[in-house]
Amino acid sequence: MNITKTLDAKGLTCPMPIVKTKKAMDTLNSGEILEVLTTDKGALSDIPAWVKSGGHTILEQKTEVETLYFYIQKA
């Protein structure tokens, strides 16, 4: 997977992980991939819901210890 950009949103609480994810996605071109790191458990349901509403795609997501990783491909 070619990660275009990484957003480290660890330690930030809702709504900041999504606010920052949206800003980072705005800088990407179609097809490029954003990696998001967050420790906010709310992101587990909110990021997939936001991705879906924006027509983007989650290529992979995983949890390592306390950190959630999302790999989002821009529509």
Partner: peptide
């Protein structure tokens, strides 16, 4: 007597 509107915050950014 409560009325509701549900719009996720991430659709209001």
């Amino acid at each position: 007597k409560f009325d509701y509107l549900n719009i996720p915050y991430f659709e209001l950014l």
